[in-house]
Amino acid sequence: MATHRLTELPADVLELIEEAVGPVLGAETVVAGYNSEIAVRLHLGSGGSVFVKGLRQDHPRVWTQQREADVNHATCGLAPALRRHIRRGGWDLLVFEDLGGRHADYAPGSPDIALVLGAMRSLASAVAPPDVDLKTMPQRMSTYVTDPGDVRFFEGRALLHTDWKPDNVLVIDGRARLVDWAWASSGAPWIDPALWAIWLIVSGHSAGEAESLAALHPDWNSTPAHHIDAFARAQERLWESVARVDGPHEWTRQVHAAAVAWVGYRSA
């Protein structure tokens, strides 16, 4: 569920950050994203800038901060480099390099699609760090499968981003980079392109077009069709649940409709 976003940087947070990185000359709130109370680009007195995201230490999803920190080194350079992890004064803050760039465009014909595929191919070689407590995709999907035995289809040791909303993909210097690893998980490597396919449908592709693009991932065509069928059905049920609970947000209804369209395409 979305987290309330502060519109101004609290004075106590600014003090903690300045102790870590030096004087701050200016701050810009970043409006994209739903999982942080603080998301801000800071311009530093030493030159350059950093991106800071954070939650209060008593927030029920504060564990996502540690997850992002733990997987940062294993992301094949796709994530922005983590500079500092600050846990003081009631706040949990991650200080990243500021990538800049722009959000990816998933619309049909966009040149960004090839860049996203390139990022996925790079990520396909990443393995979930064995010393990091990541949820597995069987765990995450267990509530939504129609047959409990289907969760075994999602098993794997690949490091997965899983949140392919266009806001989480930045295009910089002809390359796609991935931000917001809060929902990083381990599982079968074809799952990331499957999740991307749903967002491609939201962005204007037909279900067939979206799946054709997902199939360009190196692990897609070696995956049994009934594994992907089971995952598509689970995603339909997941997004139906999210859309029902999170009704005021139009985007959740759009993603649910895309998941329904994907299941319909595969059933046909």
Rank of each mutant, 00 (worst) to 15 (best):
T3D: 01
E8G: 01
P10F: 05
L14K: 08
L14M: 07
V24F: 12
G26M: 08
E28H: 08
T29E: 00
H43R: 11
G47I: 10
G48Y: 01
F51L: 12
K53E: 09
R56M: 14
R56H: 13
R56Y: 10
D58N: 15
P60Q: 15
W63A: 08
T64V: 03
Q65R: 08
R67D: 05
V71N: 01
G77S: 07
A79V: 11
R83K: 11
R84W: 06
G90C: 11
V95H: 09
V95Y: 01
F96N: 04
R102L: 05
A104M: 04
A104R: 03
D105G: 10
S110A: 05
L115I: 11
A119G: 14
M120R: 00
R121Q: 06
S122Q: 15
A124V: 12
A126H: 03
P129V: 15
L134D: 00
K135I: 03
Q139K: 09
S142N: 04
T146D: 13
G149I: 09
D150T: 14
F154Y: 10
E155V: 11
T162K: 05
V169C: 01
A176I: 05
W183R: 14
A184R: 02
S185G: 07
G187M: 01
I191H: 06
V202D: 08
E209L: 13
A215E: 09
L216G: 07
H217Q: 04
N221D: 15
S222P: 07
S222Q: 11
H226E: 15
H227P: 02
Q235R: 09
R237M: 13
R237I: 14
E240A: 15
R244Y: 02
Q254N: 13
V260N: 06
V263Q: 01
R266G: 14
S267G: 15
